[in-house]
Amino acid sequence: MTDISARDLPLKDIHLAAGAKFGPFAGWNMPLTYPAGVMKEHLHTREHVGLFDISHMKLFVVSGSGAAAMLAKACPIDAAAMPIRQSKLSFFLNDNAGIMDDLIITRLGDERFMVVANAGNAVADEAHLRAVSANFNVVLEPLDRVFIAIQGPEAAAVLADAGIDTGGLVFMNGFEPRANWFMSRSGYTGEDGFEIGLPEADARALVEKLVTDERAQWIGLAARDSLRLEAGLCLHGNDIDASTNPVNAALLWAIPKELRETGTFIGADALRAAIAAGATEKRVGLKPEGRQPVRGGAPLVDDDGNSVGRVTSGGFGPSATHPVAMGYVRADLAKPGAAKLFAEVRGSRIPVEVAPLPFTQHRYFKG
């Protein structure tokens, strides 16, 4: 169902022509599925190439002599030490070390960075960046771009055949291949792939080429969610939010050890306190018994019915061939086999076991 109060994607007409069914997400009307259906869309991405319109996400250019220092204040990242073309996962933390958003930051030049933020947080993220920037010599430029993800094992070949030079990128690298274009080798599926931000006219020409390749197929938000869940990737607002710190979320790996100990980023003191105290709960993979998916919001209980955690994301994993979920459990229960757990679903208890993440192996191209 279309939400008349939500924003439409610039390429909405193309998605309508492709038979997309739309629904609201993060203030946007997004393609949820196409005629092939979620299962086939998911498997096509794993086997060939999925095309995703992710124009709801927001790109910001941060430039100027103070750009690296400003980002090091706003995020637990050593931006000045990043090589040009490197991309890194980072976070906006609040004073309590809660994750206000997760971001991908790419160094494009000595004094130029690209920040990719989540759609639902774009307005708050811009306000936060402007507030932090006030004390630094930086220019913050929100970009008006179409953003297309090309994901799957044949992504590089499909782009090459469409005449797109990927610049020798490897996983978690990015650059500006031409004026007003941004390209990174990253994504949200666990597969090799690229994300390209570009002006609408250029995007229409690119998409027209890509969809003529039988290896490439439009993929909706529903399959994007099952792909990222199988890959063990967090969705902000579900698996992490402003009340979640990187310790409990099992995301400390994204913060360099030296910064954890001596960094002066926003939330640094609270993060150090959380590290010292240890995790009170931990984000884990969850594998429900049987074939019934367990959805986000389901409580987790032990054999005696005591609350021990919650499911934050869940569904069926077409590639894993069984239900998959993610959630938080009490820290002492976070190892496989530590306890018998159950998800409460509509008055029934479904046995679940703590499972390693990801559910499907990552296949990123690292050179």
Rank of each mutant, 00 (worst) to 15 (best):
L71T: 01
S186V: 04
V115Q: 06
R215I: 12
M70T: 00
E353N: 07
A155Q: 02
V49N: 04
V62T: 14
G347A: 05
N180W: 00
E111M: 07
R363S: 14
T166H: 12
M172T: 10
K88I: 09
A320E: 10
F265N: 01
R145Y: 03
L251G: 12
A117Y: 02
G193W: 06
M82H: 11
P153K: 01
A67T: 06
G285D: 09
V211K: 05
R215S: 03
G167I: 13
G309F: 04
H15L: 00
A331T: 08
M183S: 02
R272F: 04
A279K: 13
F25H: 10
G19F: 06
E126T: 07
A242D: 12
N180C: 00
A320V: 06
K257R: 14
S65I: 11
D202I: 00
F147E: 03
K209L: 06
L357H: 08
A72V: 03
A343Q: 05
G193D: 03
K257P: 07
A117K: 02
K40M: 11
M39V: 15
I266A: 04
F147I: 06
E214V: 12
L235T: 07
L32C: 07
F171L: 13
P177W: 04
L71I: 05
S63W: 04
A36Y: 07
A67P: 14
Q86E: 15
T189M: 05
E41L: 05
S307D: 15
A274L: 11
E141P: 02
D303S: 15
K366R: 11
N135P: 02
D161Q: 07
T33N: 08
P318K: 01
M100L: 15
L159D: 00
K73S: 02
A17P: 05
R178V: 01
W253C: 10
M82R: 11
F182W: 06
G190N: 09
N94S: 10
D192N: 06
R7S: 04
G305K: 15
